[in-house]
Design a protein around this nucleic acid. Sequence first.
DNA 1: GAGTTTGAAACT
DNA 2: CAGTTTCAAACTC
Length: 365
Amino acid sequence: MEATPISVKPPSPAAAAAAAAAEEAPAPVEEPPVPPPAPGPATLEPMASQPAAVVFEAEPCGMDQLALTPNTKRQKVEEGADGNGCKHCTCKKSRCLKLYCPCFTGGGYCSEKCGCHPCFNKALYAETVQTTRKVLLSRQKRLSLKINRRSEPNAEAVEDTHHSSSSTPPRRGCNCKKSSCLKKYCDCYQDGTGCSLFCRCEDCKNPFGKNEGLLAEESKRFLYTGADLDHSEDEHDFVIERSPRLQSPISKESSFQQTPPHIRATNRDTHMFPQALSQWQPRSWHFSKRQSNDRVIDDWQLAKQEDSYSIPRCIQILNGMAELSQTEKSVAPDVFLLPGNREIFVSLNGDVRALWLKRKIQQQN
DNA sequence: GAGTTTGAAACT
DNA sequence: CAGTTTCAAACTC
């Protein structure tokens, strides 16, 4: 089966006990943690615990900046984090080794401020924790790929081209059904961002932006085809933004934007929103804490650039071309469906532009 | 603070 | 892969 069960055996009770003793943890191991039953094929054996004297020099929640999916679940208010990744969880059954645990998910170790027990997300079990993360990330990659493929039939080709794009974890948008994206159950709402076209929420009333399902399949294909997910796998294997939602499918590396002509998508904290360009503006207040002003500027420039190659802009030019017949002018907009074509069209001049367009029209027929 | 609701993760 | 269970946070009282 493709879906590899992720089950990671926690360190042995002895190790845990030793850890507790060495650490003087506030939550003493009263009962030896029971390893998860029936570990799957991907079960990871617990790493041998390292010498406590060494391990405990590590700062809790340091974790080499290893962060799995951004905010997998409702994670206790980010403000509650103590700056090193610890979210003060209160896990009881997950042993803080699953994505349920915000500290684990956030890339940090649990600290003494957590109310979790038993907890294996500690420096003492660093190797176990890291291995678990890798397994989970691996699954996330597959999931991410699956999601992309589901949404975009050609995504496989994209994936082949950008082989490392799978490093991006699933960022799928919310799936709220009952909360109408009006409560913190909703990741989007909690992040202060609107729901995206990739959310699957029902009766979305997210005040930061509704998912109104405006994006047609065709348009989604454009967006996904343009998906150029994080390539910097080496650097970011585990350093992932907090939100689990789909990373912005817009590639800023290419000026050949894939944005569909009739849809303006803005990048708001990795979300895609249909929005009239005229309404677009850098939403710095919506950007995550990690986003820099540079990002804002990039988005702004990106949108302006897109505007230059919009379909209306192309048609405007087209209307002024005496070289083309009415029939050709009626067909030409089809050529503009491809963003690359629009950019080429606008970039060319005079006769060459007309010749190029005629050739494109012929190719279409 | 206990119980309920919620949606994501994990599992089957 | 769809359905179910488990989990922990958010929410309600």
